[in-house]
Nucleic acid binder design. Sequence first.
RNA 1: GGAGAGGUGGCAGAGCGGCUGAAUGCAGCGGUCUUGAAAACCGCCGUGCCGAGAGGCACCGGGGGUUCGAAUCCCCCCCUCUCCGCCA
Length: 428
Amino acid sequence: MLDIKFVRDNPDLVKAGAVKKRLPDRVAVVDRVLALDVELRALLPRIESMRAEQRQAGKAMGRLAAEERECHLAAQKRLKEELQQLEDQEKDLRARLEREALLLPNVPAPEVPEGKDDTENQEVRRVGAVPAFGFTPRAHYEVGERQGWLDFERAANLAGSRNYFLFGELAWLHDAVLRFAADHMSGKGFTLVDPPLLVRDLAMVGTAFFPGGEEQAYRCEKDELNLIGTAEVPVTSIHQGEILDEADLPKRYVGRSACFRREAGTYGKDTRGLYRVHQFHKVEQVIVDVADPEVSRRHHEEIVRNAEEVLQAFELPYRVVAVCGGDLGVPQIFKYDIECWMPSRNHYGETHSASRFHDFQARRLNLRYRRKADGKVAFCHTLNNTVIASPRILIALLEIHQQADGTVRLPKALVPYMRGKEVLGRPL
RNA sequence: GGAGAGGUGGCAGAGCGGCUGAAUGCAGCGGUCUUGAAAACCGCCGUGCCGAGAGGCACCGGGGGUUCGAAUCCCCCCCUCUCCGCCA
């Protein structure tokens, strides 16, 4: 949610932001919001003065003798009816304004690159060499199926496409990377959180997945709950409605959860393997802090580094990209993606996404803090980034570390998490 | 799932149709005192919206309703607690 005052003062900036994000239909939203805002503010003074009159008269009434009341009552009743009508108008205006305002996209930072989609994201840096194999490398699903670790066919039979069974050592590896990631973040002072996986609309709207993302979420209509697509949703919402003490900031959380995504509209895309699946697990870092763009920027760099450290520990080549306007979501101001090299795609594939929101989510969540300097209340800034998402990361691990004989070498960092094992699978 | 009790400012906790945006305590801020700190004492101290300002309006879990007037009465929902039932 944008500050309505900001929209009033900078309509062109907001529109330009929507254009940069390639959301042409949202440009018109700015004008609609402004028009409703004008209408509402024209109405308010009338309502307020009527209410003031009503209140004064009401107070006087209390002091009046019973027989004096009669003549005042008639006037009061008339006023009441008139007021009622205006209040209905006000309520309707506010509802429409709210509905439109939720559609306004956050304004992208000036340093967000221009571009229409992910092909125009700007590479920031590459780390680690793309390996040269002395043999023809196999795709992860081949490596996995040959070892009996993966089964997509049986999973599809009972759960539909984009589902998977992980067996044996691969299931353990899945566990190991998540555990490693949680440990890594815990060591940096992030508090581990095991959040609710089913949440009310409040949290979905608050983190700005709704409105707009309804088609991507599984919904339990009976209970009006939604399965989360990422721990960002419940973890960023932890302090929803609260006024935090500045002394308690920043809040650093590392959420660990299953994630569910319908992947509607992706038919025919990434259909093989573990890349795009309905259900996965993720360890996610979330920071809530004071409303200071400079502080947010520092946190952003910090959470990207945290993720990079994990990838370096996993000995995976990757690159960091600055996401361009057209690939940026509605709520973000700036976003880095981290992509790991995936031989089967012969390209880097997205494994991490680090977002900076400023107070966009906090406004929707009514997430505030009291400033030490002046005792005033302000909306927080929020950020989040993946630490590790599995099984997607298993693609890179299996493909990069596969050996000619069909086994998979474990990076040293993961060995302790696999009970000392250094190689997975048997030679084939 | 059934029966009861309750949700009030950062926290605790009064109020239960008009004089209550809300007593009181704690915390916070400013001051007096002190070499300094503590204690004591004095003052200030909710949030949002509109307005250049004076000021006005809204908000006592959320939404409806009754009433000239609702934190206070009624209905629905959400949450917390207690008892019963069921259950990993």
